[in-house]
Simulated scan of single mutants.
Amino acid sequence: MSKPKIKYNFWVSPITPWLLPVVLLLAWHVLTVTGIIPANKLPQPLQVVKELIISVKSGVLLDNIAISARRALLGFLIGGGIGFVLGLINGFSSKAEILMDSSVQMIRNVPHLALIPLVIMWFGIGEEVKLLLVSLGVFFPIYLNTFHGIRSIDRGLIEMAKVYGLKGLDLYKEVILPGALPSILVGIRYSLGIMWLTLIVAETVAADSGIGYMAMNAREFMQLDITVLSIIIYALLGKLSDSIAKGLERWLLQWNPNYSVAKK
């Protein structure tokens, strides 16, 4: 009896997502080695790898990564937590929406990065500046998506749940949160990108440590390899946080057929 042939699916292969980065890396190598892109514009990949090894051995890189990651996480928890709670309250209560939503929308239309000069005058270049800016950056996507997720729930489901005796925390836990969760997770993924973007700007303007500071300090001494390394690290951290969010999405939304992973 012959064994059934396993059909290879290119689009579900774990190798597929890495093809484009590998192509870009090869193009970078060829363009810099051949001199099409001069060394004073972009260093060769091997130079960046060499600097990576030196920075890891000295401990400077790992220290700066830890500092930036701590700032990003704390800012995300503070801003995201407040945005989540306000989104729940305003989404479920029309009176709370009337009271608070207009003020939130006015603040949302002020670019949070434009506040950098003001917060530097308030707090100097201490940790408060980075935490405040990151918190503001992540607050609005999570708030808006939580609010939208709550308002998108079928009101008939809520009324039915109340008929069956669900109320208070049980109503939130069993009906409202599961219904709003897809929208909330979209807000989390979007806010993670804003989180790193905000932190990059904050650390290059008002910091004496972190990956952004490392990049700015390298720029002053024309150390392009360190600057490029810093940018790559930011990109990898952003990709890591997005992958974690996607994994969380698949885990929390296993019940939703639109988010389940089909095995073919």
Rank of each mutant, 00 (worst) to 15 (best):
F123V: 09
V261W: 09
V201R: 00
I37V: 15
L62K: 11
L86P: 05
A215C: 00
R108S: 05
L52N: 08
Q254W: 12
K167M: 07
V119H: 06
A96P: 03
Q44M: 12
F221I: 14
S13M: 08
K3R: 08
T16K: 12
V261A: 08
L157M: 14
M1R: 10
R108K: 15
S230L: 02
G247Y: 12
G91P: 06
T34I: 00
P111N: 11
M1L: 10
L237H: 05
I120Y: 11
W28Y: 09
A215V: 14
V12W: 02
G212L: 00
L252S: 01
T34S: 14
L229T: 01
L19Y: 08
M1C: 05
R250V: 04
S55D: 10
S191R: 00
L86W: 11
L131V: 13
L192F: 13
L73Q: 02
I15Q: 06
L26I: 15
I142P: 00
N109Q: 12
S152E: 06
I37D: 02
L185K: 02
E128F: 07
G137S: 09
K130E: 04
L73A: 14
N145R: 01
L25R: 04
N258D: 12
Y164S: 06
S152N: 10
G59V: 01
V23Q: 07
H148L: 13
L42W: 04
G247S: 09
N258P: 00
L62Q: 09
I78L: 14
S103N: 10
T204N: 09
L144Y: 11
L181D: 01
F123P: 02
I184G: 01
D242W: 07
